[in-house]
């Protein structure tokens, strides 16, 4: 059985720069994921939460999600802490097509994926921090048992009797023996590491899972990676060697330990610029 897993897409999130373009890129990324699911002929597509951000979702998000998931592939959605399930959530506003199943209970609920293969899922059902739905859960049926949820501690997987858990909330991807964090498929913050994207999971008969990561990001190639702005500190040695007021100024500023790097650069720049302009 093949499953395409993704999580933490965070549609409608905010960005330090190029927000509208990058939010559109997030939607394009979801399109890539759905395309990949159909091309890979997967048995189901799984989203482990934080598909969108409830506090920021635009009015068009509901229709976008409905139309995006209107495909032949079964879709299973486990709401996370940013897209929690509730009366006002987008999940309840959408007229989902029959292939979409939204886990709406706060406790683990089973769905029969195939004969002998059960997918357990749960939702975060209110605002607040992510809830560990695996805490206290135990499998009570035979066959291969899989889980789809958001924010659970991976250490709990081993004692639940699950064969594998597909988890969200942790953005750094992690592919362990009995759980998978796919990470956010499209860059959200600077300095993200690890191979992330949509994870094509092949569930074997013994419950083990083999994985292959596909880069589905629509924004990574566009070079919108944010980086922390740093003030360039030039080589002031030449000026500092001057026996002039300018040289003394540079020496004093460079020698002052109370100034941090950025402020030191700003002070030098301001002073030298003022001296240069005639």
């Amino acid at each position: 059985m093949k499953l395409l897993l993704f999580a933490d897409l965070h549609l409608d999130t905010r960005f330090p720069s190029a927000g509208p373009e990058r939010r559109q890129a997030l939607r394009d990324t979801l399109g890539h994921i759905v395309d990949l699911a159909q091309e890979s002929d997967v048995d189901a597509m799984l989203c482990a939460g934080d598909l969108y951000e409830h506090d920021r979702c635009s009015p068009s998000t509901a229709e976008f999600l409905r139309s995006s998931f209107d495909c032949p592939v079964p879709v299973f959605l486990a709401p996370g802490n940013d897209d929690w399930y509730g009366p006002a959530s987008v999940y309840q506003q959408v007229d989902w097509t029959p292939n979409v199943h939204v886990f709406s209970s706060g406790s683990m609920t089973p769905v029969e994926l195939a004969d002998g293969v059960t997918l357990w899922g749960a939702a975060n059902v209110g605002p607040g921090p992510a809830r560990d739905v695996l805490d206290g859960f135990a499998v009570n049926r035979g066959g291969v048992n899989l889980a789809l949820c958001h924010g659970s501690a991976p250490d709990d997987v081993a004692i639940t009797g699950l064969d594998h858990a597909f988890l969200g909330h942790v953005h750094t991807p992690e592919h362990a023996t009995d759980y998978t964090f796919p990470g956010n498929p499209d860059p959200l913050t600077p300095g993200e590491t690890g191979e992330r994207g949509a994870v094509l999971c092949t569930v074997n008969e013994d419950g083990s899972v083999s994985r292959e990561v596909f880069d589905v990001s629509a924004s990574r190639s566009l070079g919108w990676m944010d980086s922390e702005k740093t003030f360039p500190l030039l080589d002031f040695d030449t000026v500092a060697a001057e026996r002039t007021v300018r040289g003394q100024f540079v020496r004093d500023v460079l020698a002052d330990p109370s100034l941090d790097m950025a402020l030191r650069g700003r002070v030098l720049s301001a002073g030298l610029r003022a001296l240069e302009e005639r």
């Binding site: 001057e242 002039t244 300018r246 240069e276 005639r278």
Partner: peptide, 8 residues
Amino acid sequence: AATAGTDG
């Protein structure tokens, strides 16, 4: 004195 005569 300020800039060795190069600037202001």
